[in-house]
Design a protein around this nucleic acid. Structure first.
Length: 568
RNA sequence: GGCCCUAUCGUCUAGCCUGGUCUAGGACACCUCCCUUUCACGGAGGUAACAGGGGUUCGAAUCCCCUUAGGGUCACCA
């Protein structure tokens, strides 16, 4: 009465079926994104199906919000699933669905239990009543004698009557898989063959006390039922494959093709971790000598909590607080999750491109490519066996290339979209024309979409609120030289005041004329004091664009305030 | 520690399967110079690697063995 094997779905395309099966704890990590990308490319390049499944069997860790976040990240990257959880975008278009649902493992308990009962009946699995404490003690004992711990099959000593009594009495029980003796040979498309010696795999748990299947069991059942033909996953699962093979044999399932992908690490070889963000923040806090939470945080964190966080390397700040603090301290948090890269102004196409390059290469000295290319060319045989260290600097360089080589209008469009999402206040302070001018002037010097907003705060500052610090560069521009910059600025003031046409070209002509007469044609000697006067700093887009974006009125107000500031 | 996997510039990698064309190619980073009104961009050069040791072979980055180093895994997490 229990179906042994689900019959293959005739509606399925002929190509391979791959799946990405994240557990919804936290955000989508770059490593996960890369796995999804390869799964997507492999299936779609072969007329196959890329399936998404949410592995939320861990009740303690799963949350709905997290799984939604995943879907957004994947969609943003352009990694669209042919089958899986239904997902509706803000614009109403949708993704997902399919005949093999539900795609949340937490909703598939009945299915798993059916197969678990089958295994118990067939003698491939059994109930075990060991308490976590007992197991822990045995594990510790093994550690002490330096012998590897293997489950001792204590539960197998129980008679059927005793097992029955336990079950009737409601003794907490797990179900374990009875692993047959003998070596297990894992075949992998990337790593080749590996033999796990007999006795290495012990009787692992397939159903937890809470009634949920473990990962190992759920994955095997779902892959079979969903028609998965190719399992592409991270290398950390390589050894686990033996367990999955044992289960497939016991259940009479066919064996999918396995391909274990190399891991992605930080440049220093450590695992990428959310803690890296707090590390950056602590360093910045330390540097500025902040002992209290900054007032700009608006009391989002108490003084005690602040102290506790600062003193404990393992404590993590709430996401929003961390982001706010980063803005206040003017530091960029290291990007860990896909969403971090989005926030930082990376293009999804670049992230995909770069991700693919970590662990795969098309050869022929080709490095820059899009999803279509990846889809057409991705091949398991060119996947690297060794872990890659994630080089954010190279990613930044790729992003810069992509941004500077796109059309002006495209940059403007993407900048507005980025601003609406992450810098709405900035956007609101500018007219459309002003923003378009700013984008035009920033385009060729933008490495990310975010830089336009981060590096041009001078635009949104109120004319009366602009201040000048006494940094070395500012002093050099305003007070050094003969005559000093402040005098050149004073000389320039009447010219600019009298200027009717405030366009970059007219401004340039006027300032050039001034420079020819007063600085021996050295434009820089006139431009730098001007820049400092209207932006408060020494860095901005080309000076004539800067002035034009600001407009005549603002520019002149700032210039006279600057003269007053440095003139006294 | 047991078991499994891996090893080319600082980093991502090409070449390895099917030994000679490899005095090992590309990219990012770095250094020098050029361009330049700041910051960037851009242009031209340059430094930089086959982990070590044994084999096999006329010949090895490429095949084999050992050593070393790195990684993964040994949960009622996935």
């Amino acid at each position: 009465m229990t179906p042994k094997v689900s019959s293959p779905d005739s509606s399925l395309p002929a190509g391979p079926v791959t799946r990405f099966a994240p557990s919804p704890s936290g955000h989508l990590h770059v490593g996960g994104a890369r796995t999804a990308l390869f799964c997507w490319a492999f299936a779609n390049g072969r007329n196959g199906t890329f399936l998404l499944r949410i592995e939320d069997t861990d009740q303690k860790r799963s949350s709905d919000a997290a799984s939604i976040g995943f879907l957004n990240d994947l969609d943003w990257l352009g990694i669209h699933w042919n089958e899986g959880p239904a997902f509706t975008r803000p614009d109403g278009t949708a993704l997902g669905g399919g005949a093999h649902g539900p795609y949340f493992q937490s909703e598939r308990a009945d299915t798993y239990n059916r197969y678990i009962e089958q295994l118990i009946r067939d003698g491939h699995a059994y109930h075990a009543f060991d308490t976590p404490e007992e197991l822990d003690a045995k594990r510790k004992a093994s550690l002490a004698t330096k012998t590897p711990y293997r489950y001792d099959r204590a539960a197998l000593q129980l008679s059927p009557a005793e097992v029955d009594a336990h079950l009737r009495a409601g003794t907490p029980a797990v179900v374990r898989c009875r692993v047959p003796a003998g070596p297990i040979v894992i075949k992998d498309e990337i790593l080749g063959e590996a033999t796990i010696p007999a006795g290495e795999v012990d009787d692992f748990v397939i159903r937890k006390v809470d009634g949920f299947p473990t990962y190992h069991f759920a994955v095997v059942v779902d892959d079979e039922l969903m028609g998965v033909t190719h399992v592409l996953r991270a290398q950390e699962h390589f050894t686990n494959t033996a367990k999955h093979m044992v289960l497939q044999d016991a259940l009479g399932f066919r064996r999918p093709t396995y391909a274990h992908l190399p891991l992605i690490f930080n440049p220093d070889g450590s695992k990428m971790s959310k803690r890296d963000k707090d590390k950056t923040l602590r360093a910045a806090v330390q540097q500025k000598g902040l002992t209290e939470p900054p007032a700009d945080l608006g009391g989002a964190i108490t003084a005690e909590a602040w102290k506790a966080w600062f003193g404990d390397k393992n404590k993590q700040l709430d996401f929003d607080i961390a982001a706010k603090l980063a803005a206040i301290l003017d530091v960029t948090l290291p990007e860990i999750n896909v969403d971090d890269f989005r926030r930082s102004g990376y293009l999804p196409s670049v992230v995909c491109n770069f991700l693919a390059l970590n662990g795969w290469s098309p050869g022929e000295n080709i490095e820059k490519f899009d999803l279509e290319f990846l889809k057409a060319r991705f091949d398991l045989s060119r996947v690297q066996k060794t872990p890659a260290k994630f080089d954010r600097v190279k990613l930044l360089s790729f992003n810069c290339d992509a941004i500077t080589s796109m059309a002006r209008e495209e940059f403007l469009r993407l900048s507005i979209a980025h601003g609406e999402q992450f810098h709405p206040a900035f956007l609101k302070k500018l007219t459309r024309e002003q923003f378009a001018m700013l984008a035009g002037a920033s385009h060729e010097r933008s490495k990310t979409l975010d830089e336009l907003f981060r590096n041009n705060r001078w635009v949104t500052a109120a004319d009366g609120a602009l201040t000048w610090d006494d940094s070395k560069n500012v002093r050099k521009a305003m007070l050094e030289g003969t005559p000093p910059g402040i005098e050149r600025l004073r000389g320039l003031q009447p010219t600019l005041t009298a200027l009717a046409d405030w366009s970059p070209a007219a401004l340039e002509a006027a300032v050039k004329l001034f420079a020819d007469a007063n600085t021996g044609g050295n434009l820089g000697m006139a431009a730098q004091p001007l820049r400092v006067a209207v932006t408060g700093g020494t860095v901005s887009p080309p000076i004539f664009d800067t002035l034009a974006i600001l407009g005549k009125e603002s520019s002149l107000v700032r210039i006279s305030r600057c003269l007053a500031h440095f003139g006294s």
